[in-house]
Design a protein around this nucleic acid. Sequence first.
DNA 1: TGGTTGATTAACCTACAGGTTGAATATGGC
DNA 2: GCCATATTCAACCTGTAGGTTAATCAACCA
Lengths: 108, 108
Amino acid sequence: MDRLSEVFAALADPTRRAILARLADGEATVNQIAEPFPISLQAVSKHLKVLERAGLISRGREAQWRPCRLDAEPLREVADWVAGYQRFWEQRYDTLGEYLRQLQQPET
Amino acid sequence: MDRLSEVFAALADPTRRAILARLADGEATVNQIAEPFPISLQAVSKHLKVLERAGLISRGREAQWRPCRLDAEPLREVADWVAGYQRFWEQRYDTLGEYLRQLQQPET
DNA sequence: TGGTTGATTAACCTACAGGTTGAATATGGC
DNA sequence: GCCATATTCAACCTGTAGGTTAATCAACCA
């Protein structure tokens, strides 16, 4: 799977996005990360592996703890990708098509 | 599935992102969209359904054609979401943590 | 050395994603 | 009315995602 697809797939899960939000406040161990979620520690561990493979987090090794930290570089790639479509949601440009469409709409 | 997850999942496929790129150049019919891909027309039809459910495209009805057009609003939501992490890949801010980390590193 | 805590691995289950082929559903042309 | 074209629907297959429980690995503590 290509890199961007892997990143998007990693982000396509609310639990994983919540983990990233948690890590935005600073490093955390697996137990700390898992605490607010109603799923097993093992399931969280799997989510972390997905995030790690996507390059979104990296993990240290401190005694028996594995502190996780956010790695935002892939998010920059997402931002770059989506920026290529920015003109489609910013209405400031006027195309002929837009003009004609407005003509067709009687003042609603 | 929540909206943002659905959008990310839709984007987590290179074929679907290529379809969006195609539609950025203007409307297209299903056959026109499917033409460059080595998969069946039905598979493309499924991809279009995924994109439509995510709100990324909308479809008209013109005789027996179903012209697809890009609908970028969900991409704006993606941009908004990822913007919340912008500070993590832009090095311009200096947090205390950054400062301490720099102190710990002898000039490498 | 043996128990406790933190985290991963393994085996398993269910659901769904993405592809296929074949049939069905519009719509326009003759 | 009939045929061709455009598209979707239905049934099926295979792989993988996300969850579970049980077992294992690693590091500290007493």
